[in-house]
């Protein structure tokens, strides 16, 4: 019986998220546009996240290289290390790890922020004062996450590659130029473009889930914590689901 209730709740949740997404898509086109709030959110969501994303990206590149090295040495293809690491970072590690960190930081912050605004009835107050709270709070944040995550992912890729370069040079000796040439030689548009496109969907998912959870928060301060937590969990799961769909679609289209 519980499982039926859970399944029902899950489907209800999916339906409400779909309705929320549709509302976003409709509201997005309609004026008036909250440009200032959008840039502010871009700064907070994008620029302020760079140190965290950069650090995790750098560590990821370095660790991945160091972890791969013994196996590559065993197979006698140590010289291919930059190529392998380059493909792994650009295709998968960079976008997904960035998105997950982004979900952890931004998803939870949006969920908590909107949740607290909801429980303190600030959203209702905005509506009373004539401001469209959905446009001001949700659209600006979702657009910011959608546009900033690809930017963060690209920078994370660059920092990860630099970490990988240092990783290669811990036990070997490769010039930056050779490392770069080897990485570029191993890459094609089919590696970069699908990976870049899917980060928009990751960003959109993080934003929409964070906003949905915060916007629909209740039960007082306890609800704020739950909203923040649920935003991170659902956004993270959604990132993996989108990643799975992206690789399937890319494969079907013959760009894999």
């Amino acid at each position: 019986m519980d499982s039926y209730i859970n399944a029902g709740n899950f489907l209800k949740e999916v339906g409400e998220i779909a309705r929320f997404t549709l509302k976003f898509l409709i509201t997005w086109f309609k004026p008036r546009y909250e440009i200032k709030e959008f840039f502010k959110q871009c700064y907070v969501i994008g620029y302020k996240s760079l140190p965290l994303i950069g650090l995790t990206g750098f560590i990821m590149g370095l660790v991945l290289t160091m972890q791969l090295r013994p196996s590559m040495v065993d197979y006698g293809v140590e010289s291919e290390l930059p190529a392998i690491v380059g493909i792994a970072i650009i295709r998968e590690i960079g976008p997904v790890i960035t998105a997950l960190i982004f979900a952890g930081k931004i998803g939870s912050s949006i969920g908590a922020e909107l949740g607290s605004m909801k429980v303190t009835e600030q959203i209702d107050a905005m509506e009373v004062s004539g401001t469209n709270p959905f446009k001001y709070l949700v659209v600006s944040r979702v657009l910011a996450t959608t546009l900033m995550l690809p930017i963060l992912a690209i920078l994370s890729d660059a920092i990860s590659l630099y970490g990988a370069y240092l990783g290669v040079n811990i036990k070997g000796e490769t010039s930056l130029q050779l490392f770069w040439i080897q990485v570029i030689d191993s890459l094609s548009f089919n590696d970069v473009i699908p990976a870049f496109i899917k980060t928009y969907f990751f960003g959109f998912a993080v934003g929409i889930i964070g906003c949905y959870k915060g916007y629909n928060s209740n039960k007082g301060t306890e609800g704020v914590g739950k909203s923040a937590n649920a935003a991170v969990v659902v956004a993270s799961v959604l990132i993996f689901i989108i990643d799975l769909l992206a690789v399937q679609i890319t494969d079907l289209l013959g760009y894999n």
Binding site: G46, Y47, L50, P150, I151, L152, I154, L155, D157, A158
Partner: peptide, 8 residues
């Protein structure tokens, strides 16, 4: 920040 990413 945005230009740096776009440049890369």
């Amino acid at each position: 920040f945005v230009l740096g990413a776009l440049f890369f």
